[in-house]
């Protein structure tokens, strides 16, 4: 299963490296979103710095949608889905591979966005361990839930509009928890119970959707 996962992830990442969609389109999009937030919230009043955690995660969420959509649009051409289905690879492995590739791209985008938040919003990235742990758990959760919904809507003609409608409400707890955890780490939020419960929730989300994908992906790939 893991070997299959590595195979699929390697294939997806190789496609990304050659097509450069993530670097040439999604990454600039992420930066544009950050700039747009600065237009929407007056930079002079310190709003941006205080809201940086939330804005960062909203931008990540948007990027996740694009990454997932991209991950399944490469399968739609030339009947690649059928190839994948008939390849004899373990469906759970395919799921882990696709989710892993999406997660890796998200990590790269998060690094870029974090740099953007520091440079553009003047945020001081304190509490590194919590920030990194939040990123890890949230990224896995987003990639897993995104991949489940990605394959669910992959073969459909309305997938561009359907995927955000399906994914955004499901991913809302990730946005909420990750933002709160970052606020605790950055010291921009109100007094709370610390980042612990939020991190726990993110881990639970990630575990639930990875497990769901591993179990259900076979049925989805066959029937969808």
């Amino acid at each position: 299963m893991l070997r299959d996962a590595l195979l699929v992830a390697g294939k997806d990442l190789r496609i990304e490296r050659r097509s450069r969609v993530t670097t040439n389109q999604v990454a600039p999009f992420a930066v544009v979103v950050l700039v747009l937030f600065a237009f929407a919230l007056d930079p002079d009043r310190g709003l941006l710095t205080r809201a940086a955690a939330g804005l960062f995660w909203v931008a990540v969420l948007f990027c996740a949608i694009l990454a997932v959509q991209r991950s399944f649009s490469v399968e739609s051409a030339d009947g690649a889905r059928d190839g994948l289905r008939l390849s004899g690879l373990d469906p759970a492995g395919i799921f882990l591979g696709k989710a892993g590739a999406v997660a890796l791209q998200l990590v790269a985008l998060e690094a870029l966005l974090a740099a953007g938040v520091v440079l553009l919003y003047g945020t001081d990235l304190r509490g590194g361990v919590v920030l990194l742990a939040t990123c890890a758990a949230a990224t896995i959760g987003l990639a897993a839930s995104g991949t489940v919904y990605g394959v669910l809507s992959a073969g459909l003609r309305v997938r561009e509009t359907l995927l955000p409608l399906l994914l955004l409400p499901v991913a809302a707890p990730v946005l909420l928890s990750a933002t709160r955890a970052w606020e605790v780490a950055l010291g921009t939020g109100g007094a709370g119970d610390g980042a612990g419960p939020w991190l726990r929730l993110l881990v639970i989300f990630a575990v639930v959707y990875v497990a769901f994908g591993v179990v259900a992906f076979g049925a989805l790939l066959e029937e969808a």
Binding site: S145, V148, Y149, L152, L166, P169, V170, V208, Y209, F212, A216, A219, L220, E223, A224
Partner: peptide, 12 residues
Amino acid sequence: TRSAIGGLVAAV
């Protein structure tokens, strides 16, 4: 099948 899985993802 698609709907059932979608419903479960939402319910979870």
